[in-house]
Design a protein around this nucleic acid. Structure first.
Lengths: 153, 153
DNA sequence: CAGATCATTGGTAAATTATCCCAATTCTGG
DNA sequence: CCAGAATTGGGATAATTTACCAATGATCTG
């Protein structure tokens, strides 16, 4: 697998910010003409560096005013327990992120909800109904100071 | 501001997954013809519901193998202290997310780095050089069980 | 250092797609 | 049931993507 050179990284940085600019614009910004620029983008897609193109949506415009971080400890940490948990939370749209953590908490989840009532519904009808959970601890976000999807290149 | 109807929500759900499908495809999937579908998308953009279009990049392909959550407590929590902190971390590309939290921790950050050495460099040359920080606590993610950008619609 | 090979670039043309305009249809309130 | 408003659908045009081929530049070898 060939390395990413400076131009590839510049392309990635730009497309992570705006994927709707034309090839002409992108080519100008990275100092190439359209053809080689287009070929590089296609290669980055084929190699799996660029995974997808998406639209981002405003959380407040959707009325999702609550962001919660949930620390979860399982009763047991065998592989099948972890897999079962992972499978369950993967289905739920409210869970945007989930990480298996070091330390005394097993999982860290980021969950969004319209308000506290619907968050409570999420807890009662979904999360607390899972087997094998030893403890749940919710921490609420007062505000989102920074949210970026752009990985540093 | 007009409400989002079922078709708008379907459009948002689809574009949050794949923004590169053609208007024809999108129109077919939501059960409209191209013209009204296109108009709805443009309206969603103008109203600020759709905020941008971006490419997503594979974290491992970039060699970013370390994900860390950092809890931070400030010495003081006056507004100017909070603003100063927010401004500083906003500049750093390693910090992908930052939330002002309830409870006994002021901020929660998600940071990515290539390895432990470069994470240490981030801590030493950036985070710990900020004034007014009372405590820093790092928790490492062993794996990313789920990561989604798509808000529930 | 010269020559040859390979990879990458740039321009052009064709195909695809987005975008706009106008007539037709559907929905809503009285 | 009717009138007005909003939304839809189709077609024409403009913009953009995509593929092809010649030319340029880099690298390796003798």
């Amino acid at each position: 697998m060939p390395e990413l050179d400076a131009i590839d990284r510049k392309i990635l940085a730009l497309l992570q910010t705006d994927s709707r600019m034309t090839m002409q614009e992108l080519a100008d910004k990275v100092g190439l003409s359209v053809s080689p620029c287009h070929r590089r983008v296609k290669l980055l897609e084929e190699r799996g560096v660029i995974t997808r193109y998406i639209a981002t949506v405003d959380q407040k415009a959707l009325g999702l005013h609550v962001s919660v971080f949930i620390s979860i400890k399982l009763a047991r940490q065998k592989e099948e327990d972890l897999n079962r948990f992972a499978k369950a939370i993967s289905k739920w749209d409210e869970v945007l992120e989930c990480y298996l953590m070091t330390g005394n908490r097993d999982y860290l989840l980021r969950v969004v909800a319209a308000d506290l009532a619907s968050y409570e519904t999420f807890l009662k009808t979904k999360l607390t109904r899972l087997d094998g959970i030893a403890s749940i601890e919710s921490s609420f976000a007062l505000s989102q100071v920074k949210y970026s999807i752009a990985l540093p290149v």
